[in-house]
């Protein structure tokens, strides 16, 4: 039938906090998606239904929002998400080489996850650190002036 999953008390408390800050319940939609993604890594169909139910909107309305934004993950991602900047300054400074190297090392292209679920690789628009291009982010950490030499060492930090 409908949602199998329910929100945890923690998630609900966090979402309640966001709801309290806005004039209408559904205005907390993006915050709620972020919260769930924070806890679960991604937003499954079941999670989506649970959040929609909690916000008293339809799954359609919520999914319309969730699929608009590129950092709401509606498919499972690996334990670590690599966001590689593919925008102009990084292009000029050679992000494509870094991309090639990640592909070789991890065997995954943009949009893919390693079979062991360790990494997901995604392209990302300008990370706003163009004076230190090329750049990438893994989870919440930013790496700048990335060279082919650093890469192995950076990746080794994540399990």
């Amino acid at each position: 039938m409908i949602a199998q999953e329910t929100l945890t008390p923690e998630e609900m408390a966090e979402i309640d906090h966001e709801i309290a800050l806005v004039p209408v319940r559904r205005a907390a939609a993006i915050e709620a998606l972020k919260i769930v993604q924070q806890h679960r890594g991604w937003v499954s169909d079941d999670s989506l239904h649970a959040v929609a139910g909690y916000l008293e909107i339809s799954p359609e309305e919520l999914d319309s929002v969730s699929t608009f934004y590129n950092l709401v993950f509606r498919r499972p991602v690996g334990r670590n998400v690599i966001l590689l900047c593919d925008s102009i300054s990084c292009y000029v400074m050679g992000y494509e080489k870094i991309y090639e190297q990640i592909r070789e090392r991890l065997g995954i292209a943009f949009g893919q996850t390693t079979p062991d679920g360790r990494f997901t690789l995604l392209p990302n628009a300008c990370l706003g650190t163009c004076d230190h291009a090329p750049a990438l982010m893994i989870n919440n950490e930013l790496f700048r002036n990335v060279t082919e030499n650093d890469l192995d060492e950076i990746l080794d930090r994540y399990h």
């Binding site: 169909d45 989506l48 339809s58 799954p59 359609e60 309305e61 999914d63 319309s64 699929t67 590129n70």
Partner: peptide, 18 residues
């Protein structure tokens, strides 16, 4: 409630969630 627009740019899709 059960029809909406999904995704963005030239991938926008009009339909149901499922």
């Amino acid at each position: 409630k059960d029809l909406d627009v999904f995704a963005a740019h030239n991938h926008v899709y009009f339909g149901r969630e499922k």
